[in-house]
Structures are given as C-alpha cells and as structure tokens.
Design a binder for these strands. Structure first.
Lengths: 222, 222
DNA sequence: CGTCTCATTGACACCCTTCAAACGAAGTGG
DNA sequence: CCACTTCGTTTGAAGGGTGTCAATGAGACG
C-alpha cells in the first residue's frame, strides 16, 4: 500500500476531547450529533450538505426501489466516513443501524479546505477510492456468489472490521444483513444455521458469531 | 450538479491532434496505444502504473473467481477514464471489448500534477465519485432486480451513453452483458426475446436494439 | 460452400424466495 | 414474579426464476 493512500481508521472517539466544534482528522470543524436506532441521517434526494464520520455505533447507506426492495450499499463503523457523493443531492439514504454518534462536517468547508490544502484533497480522494474498491468487491459478491459464499465473506469482513478476537458481535439485524448481501432474511438465517452445522461457526446468540474455522470460511468466501 | 463536479465526457478523439505525447484533458501527457478485441490492458495484481482514457472503442474492467465466474464492473466508452484504484496494485483486470485506442497516462505524473494543481486533483476526485455513484446503482441492480429489470436498465443506460437516436448498437457480446448484469448468457438472450415479444424493443440483429417503448422500458428498469 | 463463433431455444434441475407458523428474547403491566 | 405483548429469528413446505446442459440457428469469413 502506498503510505499516502492509506486511510486513518482509528476510532476518532479515542482522541476526541472538545465535543462540538472540534476538528476531525480531515482537518475541518464538525458538529457532534447523536442518532437513535433506525433514525434517518439523510434521505435520497436531499441536498448533500454534510460529510459524516462515525464516532460510535454503526450507520448504513442504502437505495430503495418503488416497491420497497432495499439494497444496503455499505455499513459504516467507528472511524469510517460517509456522505461523499458526486451530485449536490444525495443519491443514497443513510440511517443509524444502532444508536450512534456522528461528526457532521459541512461539505462546503471541506471543499474550501481541500482547495487550499492538498493533504485534505488527497485524503478525500483516497477515501473515495477506498469506497470504490469495496463496492467493486461487493458487486462481485452480489453478481456471482451463492448464499454460503456471501455470508462467509460477510462474517470475515465484519471480523476484520470489528476489533475483537475469535468472535464477532454483529451490530445489525438479519434483515440488514440480507439487504446488504442481496438475499432474504430467511436465506441468511438458514445459511448461518448451515455454517454452524458444518462447524465453520458457532452461534451462542443470534448476534454473536464465533468463527471456529476461519480457513474454511475463507475458502468458502473465495 | 455542481459545475465544479461535472465531468468532461467529450470523446477526446475530437480534439486529438498530436498523437503520442499530447496532453489529455486531465492536463498530463499520455501515450496513445491500440488494443485489439479481447486483449488484456492490465491484470489483477499488476502494479497500477497508468490511468487510461478511451479514445475509441470500448473497454471492460472485471474481477474473476477461482472457478472462472466473472463479474464485469464497468464498460468504458469513448471519453471515459478508468484505472484509478486505491492500492499500488490493480484489484481489477481490464480488457478491450472491441478494438480500441487508449491514452495511457502515467499515474505518477498525474499524482505529481494533482499535488501542484487543485483543478486536476479535483477532476480526479470527481471522476472517482462518479464511478462510485454508478457502482452503487449497479449494486442495487445486482442485489435486488430481476432479469427483465436488469436488461431494461442496461439498454437504457447504453442508449444514454452511446450517441444515436432511437436505436443502440451494442458494442459487447451477450456474454459480456451477462457478466455485467450478474446473469447467464441464456437468461440475457431469453429476456431480450421476451422484451421484443412485449413490444418494448425490436432486434433487427443481435447487436442492434431499437427502443420502441422507452417509457415501458423505464418503468421496468425502475 | 464449409467452418467457426456467437446467439437462440428447449427441457429440466436447483437454489433461493415466498408464505406460514413456531420459537425466543426483551420489555411492560398486573 | 409471572402472564402478556412485541419484535426479531428460525424452521418448514411449496413454488418460481434463473442456471445448467444440450441442440439448433444465424452471421462472418475464407
């Protein structure tokens, strides 16, 4: 990895000291805001005025079809940034998966600083490239993988992103997982059970997953 | 659309005068290269040394699984730019869909210029955001749409991107379309026939599509 | 005209969805 | 402390949409 292209993923909470008005790692002041579970952060079509960094909790962005079919495009964990979009209006909606605290950074301030400071401009670009890389991986999953491969990939990805050893506490519901993986809630549930029967994982509770056989999961995830 | 976020999509051929060594709209010298149909432009895992602009013809980027399943992430038409990735190595492969001419722009030159010139930096970022927006749309398609909706969306998208009126001359094979839409070649073929039976399109030849009912197609594409 | 490649069509199988019911955990009120 | 409710998850049975396998058809080219 290029050092200059790497992304700072430290949960910002750890260095937060000032609350509202403190500078984000992107170098621009933001306002700390709390959202409760399932609360809307922004909606598709609304003006895209802010970029958000997650301090605690988890957020999701998604698109929805007229008949209610939903595709979650990404989950955002502490340290992650979302809300960067091409147009002046949001083409995605965003909601809180769990109660969460975000820093909202005014997009115009960010643009202004990026115009002056190459470092900020470069960070924003890197962040966008990182998202693009993940969405390409996501497309491969949605277009070409079966249910077991999708779920195995998802669990490994979550284990990578959530700091903990040997287990994952999933922050989202089965419905969220299904809408992220392009499956139904029933298929996700059945697949989890199957992975458990195959001794690849254990499920002490429905939100807690022990990865008993990471190699086996990785083989599946392809 | 922000004027500053808009993308210059003019086919560069129209302003090309010097051949190799001429400056791209991105402001950096590039080398014009010709590729024949199905020729590899770069492979997954190779060092990512160049960014490409299509002058003529069409290119595809894709990822492939160990057993050969392929997901095409995007087609690139004249004027389009591809090859921008987060890491130092390509995470996608790229090939020529048809014989095509590309300008290869050295990434290090681009990075150097972006470091000096905010305009270039901003163009690169906008381009990346544009790709990200498209890939989010693509994820919705792959995760939640059925075959008819996928094909209808694809035809409308191609009609938008390929200048012509009332008809589209598809530059790619059914296999390419299938791998882009997350379907099989047989399903694409059957769906095209079905759309024709429903009087939404006409197929004078397998590469030429007349969009007889754009409204009906748009309703389907959702 | 023969060959090669790609596209279309048909028959059948299977993975995932749909519909439905049971189960379990968490919270509330008696 | 225990019914009761609510919400989310799991499990079952059945159906459908898409994949697989195979054969036929249609252009392109020599």
């Amino acid at each position: 990895m290029h050092a200059e292209l790497s992304i700072d993923r430290r949960p910002w909470t750890q260095v937060d000291r000032a609350g509202a008005g403190a500078a984000d790692p992107l170098g621009v002041d933001g306002v700390k805001t709390t959202y409760v579970r399932n609360e809307e952060i922004y909606g598709e079509g609304e003006p895209s005025a802010f970029v958000y960094r997650v301090l605690s909790g988890v957020a999701r962005t998604y698109r929805i079809l007229a008949d209610g079919r939903r595709q979650i495009s990404e989950f955002f964990l502490p340290g992650d940034v979302f809300g960067l979009e091409a147009g002046i209006d949001h083409s995605l909606s965003a909601e809180a998966v769990s109660d969460c605290v975000l820093v909202a950074i005014r997009r115009s301030h960010l643009a202004e600083r990026a115009g002056r400071d190459n470092g900020t401009a470069h960070k924003l670009w890197s962040l966008t490239l990182h998202h693009l890389g993940r969405s390409e991986e996501h497309m491969l999953l949605l277009g070409r993988k079966n249910a077991a491969e999708r779920v195995a990939w998802f669990l490994l990805d979550m284990a990578k992103r959530i700091p903990a050893q040997g287990q994952v506490d999933l922050p989202m519901s089965r419905q969220d997982i299904a809408d992220y993986l392009g499956l139904t809630i029933e298929t996700v549930s059945r697949t989890m059970t199957q992975l458990q029967d195959d001794d690849l994982i254990a499920l002490p509770s429905c939100r807690r997953v022990m990865l008993s056989d990471r190699t086996g999961l990785a083989d599946l995830a392809a």
